[in-house]
Amino acid sequence: MAFEPPPRLVRALAETTGGEDWLRGLPQALDRAVEALALSVERVQVPGGRSSLVVLVRRSDGSPAVLKLIPRRSRPAGERAALAHWHGLGAAQLLEGGADAQAGTGDGVLLLERLNPDVSVRTLPEAKALLEGAATLRRLWVEPPSGHVFETVEERTGRQADAMRAALVGPGDEAAALVDTALGLRAELLADPPERLLLHGTFRQSKVLGGERMPWLAVGPDPVVGECAFDLARLVRDRVEDLIAMPSGAATTRRRVKRLAESLEVDRERLRGWTVFRAVESGLRARRVGRPRDADWLLEFAAWL
């Protein structure tokens, strides 16, 4: 099938090692998946995601579905395992055939329940979006399966901590103090985690789509096992560009931490700590790959907390 990958995916993969190679092989990978799963293609979803190709398809019985092709570096096996474990509770359903796709199409292929790709929680007013996003996230916090191989929060943030240190350009780097704060908070938080549950890992408003089976369902997890505050921390900074533009952005952010912590019964200080760590990590990563505006927003946001 001849197609142009969505520009957002192309830009994101250009920031990763091996991304361009994966893109070059994408047309052939799509053809193999479509043939192996007996699908007919409607269209490639645009703008789509930043770490996968999303294709609207129909199965052999005419029912709608989504075919998702994911680079190996984005851990598709973990996404498949998490979706299978959630079994449609709070997240898109992994369809029959999707779990077996590895045999005929490669481990980066998922066949999923079709949701409304144009309606996400992010399209709602902010207060309603936070409420619906938090309610969806709560459903995903379950005990991980026995013998799971999911990455832990400690492992993931350990890799990120090493990258954060390496990203500093020297003692005079203006971000150094924030990095020290973020790493100190990480050490404190990991010393005594309150729970070890299966988490979405990369949850935000745009990853909660409208559905027919349930009003809102999550997509695109990068699952990790750890405490709930780590997952909720990403939701705190949603629409960060709007917060930065507000004269009361700092106060609004602190109120958001309080509101989300109370609504999901998460310790407020633990939520604040993980929010700082994740914002600093994302800010330094944005700076490293040449997105200075995003980096400035995220580091300013972290400094408010």
Rank of each mutant, 00 (worst) to 15 (best):
G170L: 15
V169A: 15
S146Y: 13
G147P: 00
L124P: 03
A134G: 08
R159H: 10
D162E: 14
L124F: 01
P171E: 14
V142T: 15
W141Y: 09
A127P: 00
F150S: 03
A127I: 04
A135M: 13
G133F: 06
K128R: 12
N116W: 04
L111E: 05
T157K: 04
R114W: 03
A163H: 01
R122Y: 04
A175H: 08
S146K: 14
V149Q: 15
L131Y: 04
R114D: 04
A127H: 10
V153Q: 06
E126H: 09
E155Q: 15
E126K: 04
T152N: 08
V119Q: 06
F150V: 03
P144F: 12
L168K: 06
R159M: 08
R138D: 13
E143M: 14
E143Y: 02
N116G: 07
E154G: 10
L111N: 06
A135S: 15
T123W: 05
G133S: 13
V121G: 01
L111Q: 09
G172V: 11
V169Q: 15
H148I: 03
P145K: 12
F150C: 07
L168D: 02
G133C: 12
F150E: 02
M164H: 09
S120H: 13
D118Q: 11
M164S: 10
A135E: 12
P117F: 04
D118M: 07
L131T: 07
E151H: 11
R139I: 11
D173I: 02
L111T: 10
S146N: 14
V119H: 05
V121A: 08
R139S: 12
D118S: 13
V153G: 00
P144T: 12
K128E: 12
E154C: 03
P125K: 07
H148M: 06
L115N: 00
L112A: 07
P125V: 04
D162T: 09
A161W: 05
E155M: 14
A161Y: 03
E132D: 08
L130T: 01
V169Y: 08
L124I: 07
A129Q: 01
E132L: 07
P117T: 07
P117S: 10
V142L: 14
G172M: 04
D118A: 14
V149R: 15
T152F: 11
R122W: 10
L137P: 01
H148A: 03
T136F: 08
L124A: 02
A167Y: 01
F150W: 08
A134D: 08
A161N: 06
L110P: 00
D173S: 05
D173G: 00
A135Y: 04
A175Y: 09
P125S: 01
L137K: 00
D162F: 09
A163R: 06
A163S: 00
W141K: 05
L130Q: 03
L140H: 09
